[in-house]
């Protein structure tokens, strides 16, 4: 059959692109988690300046299109001497982008832990940072796994925009091959199928993590 033949012929050409999509997604989520945590804490301290900086960052990132952010980093920054490869620019850009959303996820998670927990910890003589690290974050972490997993999937799909700054990920590859073979429709469908498969795999991984956290509370309180 023609469809099977098509898939069989062209799928191997996507393997490097799939690998790049996975890498850029994972890197941008890891970077996003670090930025998100720092930003969430900055938003929650009593230091006004930090609150403002965090607010500004979140407002700018959530208020502008991702493609503008990526283009800015890849096409505009070289103008002031910062030249990054497309892959690095894409990972950093997506990381900064995800960070703003993850910051709000973390802030929500932290704020959902009752103040009684903080009071109990402080009344034992624990410092603010001990309280955060030992009492609040381990509980908040468990609550943010579902929205974080959701953000992971959004990040995976958003990584396609890195194609527009010349990263050879799945979407870009489908466009390139489609243009050169005049089979654009087939290639877009193939790209879509790869995204669908990756999203499904990521969802399964996220669910596994949720389950593990639920059944081994003990371990997660010992990590931090």
């Amino acid at each position: 059959m023609a469809v099977l033949e098509f898939i069989k012929t062209y799928s191997p050409l996507f393997l490097p692109a799939i690998w790049i999509t996975i890498q850029i997604t994972v890197l941008s989520i890891l970077l996003g988690i670090v930025i998100g945590l720092v930003t969430a804490l900055a938003k929650l301290t009593r230091v006004k300046l930090l609150n403002r900086i965090a607010d500004l960052y979140i407002t700018v990132i959530r208020g502008t299109p991702l493609i503008v952010q990526l283009s800015f980093i890849y096409f505009a920054l070289p103008g002031i001497g910062i030249e990054l490869s497309a892959f690095v620019a894409g990972s950093i850009g997506l990381g900064i982008h995800n960070g703003a959303y993850i910051a709000e996820i973390f802030r929500g998670g932290i704020q959902s832990i009752s103040t009684g927990q903080t009071e109990a910890a402080r009344s034992l003589g624990m410092t603010q940072s001990q309280t955060m690290r030992r009492i609040i974050l381990p509980q908040a972490l468990r609550r943010v796994i579902p929205p974080l997993g959701n953000q992971f999937i959004i990040a995976l799909k958003d990584s396609s925009l890195a194609g527009l700054i010349t990263v050879n990920e799945i979407y870009m590859t489908s466009r390139r091959l489609g243009a050169s073979t005049y089979q654009q429709m087939e290639f877009y469908m193939l790209a879509g199928a790869f995204y669908l498969i990756l999203v499904t795999l990521f969802s399964v991984v996220v669910q596994k993590i949720e389950k593990t956290l639920e059944t081994s509370k003990r371990q997660s309180s010992e990590i931090l």
């Binding site: 009752s114 009684g116 927990q117 009071e119 109990a120 910890a121 402080r122 009344s123 034992l124 003589g125 624990m126 410092t127 030992r134 009492i135 381990p138 509980q139 468990r142 509370k217 003990r218 997660s220 309180s221």
Partner: peptide, 29 residues
């Protein structure tokens, strides 16, 4: 923190740490 560690407090709603066992709650301080 030094002042507080010598003053124990018990709350109406217990405020135990739910992610820790009873023993972990007790030895945390």
């Amino acid at each position: 923190n030094k002042v507080r560690k010598k003053i124990g407090m018990v709350f109406q709603h217990f405020n135990l740490f739910p992610h820790m066992t009873v023993m972990q709650n007790v030895i945390e301080g």
